[in-house]
Nucleic acid binder design. Structure first.
Lengths: 140, 140
DNA sequence: ATTTTTATATCACTAGCTTATGAACCGGCG
DNA sequence: CGCCGGTTCATAAGCTAGTGATATAAAAAT
């Protein structure tokens, strides 16, 4: 049974990939910004593991985000080594804009879907959300 | 409403990204192999548009796949320009292996989910599948 | 006071994409 | 037939975002 789910998810993953505007933000950049938006400022070392990239990659990503004004580096008064990354207002806007683009594309598709399919997807959303929480906890 | 769906999908997309073993195959490579497995040999020009990459990128990808023995280049007897790409047995195995890895990871998560969530996801699968078909048609 | 560990940055390198361009092949038309 | 515009694929050069190895500096441990 789980094989069927995995297969379905696989197809679906491609759908989402296609649905995502190939805009400015890379996958990791977008994901990191969303994390910063969702759960506030983080130290660099708290970001690279859950985002699934190496520490140097996160350093570089933060540098890019900072250069583009989407995030800012701060320091922890209690730990001179730490770098605390915070999302900026422009960063929030970028996330919102990206979400809008995806929503628009998705809406156009959902319209063409039978009402019962639409309903089935809506019904599954909370479950998908909880699935998301599960995986987020475990990989931190 | 669609905003909620898009938001849920966004989270879900990250889940899938995390669930995918960062193994040998790139996203496009895996997606292309699956397409070749699903709907048989294709010309190069029939691949790069639906996969959302430039034609040179597809040429390079096919070269890599060929070098790794996962796909093979053939020619169309009726059109000397065309290159016909076919998945090899090794390619099918690579796809299967990747799917297994994802299934294992997903199963471990699904186990921890309440039964009704599990059921809701299963119930939404056909709808997700049709959504996938929709987008595949439209971007060809 | 050393030593070890932790947090971040830097370096050199690679994969996989892009645009621009080139080369081979097709179909049609004088 | 022979040329010509349009396809199809390949090549070249350059960019982005990743990697592992390693350096540096602060904190923690001995």
């Amino acid at each position: 049974m789980d094989v069927a789910i995995a297969g379905g998810f696989e197809r679906f993953y491609e759908v989402l990939r296609r649905l995502t505007p190939r805009s400015e933000l890379s996958l990791t950049a977008a994901s990191t910004l969303r994390r910063l938006e969702r759960s506030g400022p983080h130290r660099l070392c708290e970001l690279h593991v859950p985002e699934g990239v190496s520490q140097p990659a996160m350093t570089q990503l933060v540098t890019r985000l900072e250069k583009e004004g989407l995030a800012s580096r701060g320091s922890d008064p209690d730990d001179g080594r730490a770098v605390v990354v915070t999302i900026t207002e422009a960063g929030r806007e970028a996330v919102a804009k990206r979400r809008e683009g995806r929503t628009r594309a998705l809406s156009a598709l959902l319209e063409q879907l039978p009402a019962e399919d639409h309903a089935a997807i809506v019904a599954a959303l909370p479950a998908l959300e909880r699935l998301g929480e599960l995986i987020t906890e475990q990989s931190i």
